[in-house]
């Protein structure tokens, strides 16, 4: 639990109790980090908060955060499901690469664009099923199993580009263009798409027993087995869901750049996704899926990234800040570390 004893607050015990109760709630930490980033923005770059209407749609840094955060958030949600089973999916970046290359290829082949959309999704799902097969049926450790596709996936993407000579993988597509920069009313289309998918995922996990089964398998595999839950099937479906979510992310990311660049696309996206889950309070030990919190985690990351961009710092600083963030979160979660800090503080007094 993320509770911290604040020295000196003992005399105001009722206040301290309320505070402690508030600190116990998982959402407190990510929200305070988010607020902190926003406050820093408010001081350094007040323009961050301006929202205006331009060309019939909303514009502004805050909208930009949501806009750019769509794809990473989708990947993170899929990752949250996999992590719920005590697994991990390292291959999401590579799946994006494969999806992108298939889109470019089928557009060159002249398929109807709606068909391409479904093909791309199917590719994502098949990639997820492959991971699920290795983990659930062959019993290979998730890190290792998904490493295979992580290594090979970008190569497969390049191969698909080669089918039509690999000369120029860029393309034009109105449908994808619409998904990328289009808007319905004032709102970017992809945000609406995201809300629909998020709702769908939530319904799938919470309005069927799938979420409960995934959490059981991740929480205590032996007990889940004895309770009659088909563990293999559940694990398999978790990776398939991750493939589906990553498929959507691949469509959006590919639509954004209207080309297939398997080597560079979605670089480090698996790490961002894992980070979003961890910031959202999801334990890598599995057993719980927090969709809303993961979304919040993805939002924190994207806000930070956009803020760094706005502040004029080189975007490369993102990495080091993310790294420090991960380290701090991990250290705070460690009992040994907290005990050591408390002992240190005690000695100083």
């Amino acid at each position: 639990m993320n509770t911290q004893q604040m020295p000196g607050s003992q005399n105001q015990s009722s206040f301290a109790a309320t505070l402690r109760a508030a600190l116990v709630h998982n959402a407190v930490w990510p929200i305070s980090v988010l607020v902190l980033i926003l406050v820093v923005n408010a001081i350094v770059a007040p323009a961050f908060f301006s929202i205006r209407i331009q060309d019939g749609r909303l514009f502004g840094s805050m909208i930009d955060v949501l806009y750019r955060g769509t794809a990473p958030a989708m990947i993170a949600l899929g990752m949250a499901v996999v992590i719920g089973t005590k697994g991990i999916d390292l291959s999401v970046g590579s799946i994006v690469a494969v999806v992108g290359s298939v889109i470019a290829w089928r557009i060159k082949e002249g398929d109807p664009h709606l068909v391409i959309l479904f093909t791309a999704l199917a590719v994502g799902i098949v990639c997820g099923m492959w991971n699920g097969l290795l983990v659930a049926v062959l019993d290979i450790q998730p890190i290792i199993a998904t490493l295979i596709l992580m290594v090979a996936g970008r190569g497969i993407g390049l191969m698909v580009n080669l089918i039509y000579g690999g000369t120029d993988p860029s393309f034009e597509s109105e449908l994808l263009q619409g998904l990328s920069v289009g808007n319905i009313g004032l709102i970017p289309t992809r945000l609406i798409l995201f809300v629909v998918i998020f709702a769908g995922l939530w319904l799938l996990l919470r309005r069927t027993a799938l979420g409960l089964f995934i959490e059981s398998v991740g929480g205590n595999p032996a007990a889940a087995q004895l309770a009659g839950i088909p563990s293999r099937l559940i694990k398999f479906s978790a990776y398939t869901i991750s493939g589906f979510m990553t498929g959507w992310a691949g469509i959006i990311l590919t639509a954004d750049v209207h080309t297939s660049d398997p080597v560079k696309v979605a670089m480090f996206s698996e790490l961002d996704a894992i980070l979003a889950v961890v910031i959202g309070g999801g334990s890598l030990m599995g057993g719980r899926i927090y969709l809303g919190m993961t979304l919040l985690g993805a939002l924190v990351i994207q806000t930070m990234v956009t803020s760094i961009l706005m502040s004029g710092m080189p975007p490369e600083y993102n990495l080091i800040i993310k790294a420090l963030l991960v380290l701090i979160i991990l250290l705070l979660q460690s009992n040994n570390f907290r005990a050591a800090v408390i002992a240190l503080l005690g000695r100083r007094k």
Binding site: I143, Y317, L319, K322, A323, V326, L327, S334
Partner: peptide, 27 residues
């Protein structure tokens, strides 16, 4: 040390190293 003392999975601890050192390159 942090892997053993803080009981952090090696995967995650060294992942932070991946970010940190790459970020340090750019710094």
């Amino acid at each position: 040390f942090i892997i053993d003392f803080c009981d952090i999975q090696p995967f995650i601890a060294t992942l932070s190293g991946l970010f940190l050192l790459r970020g340090a390159c750019f710094m």
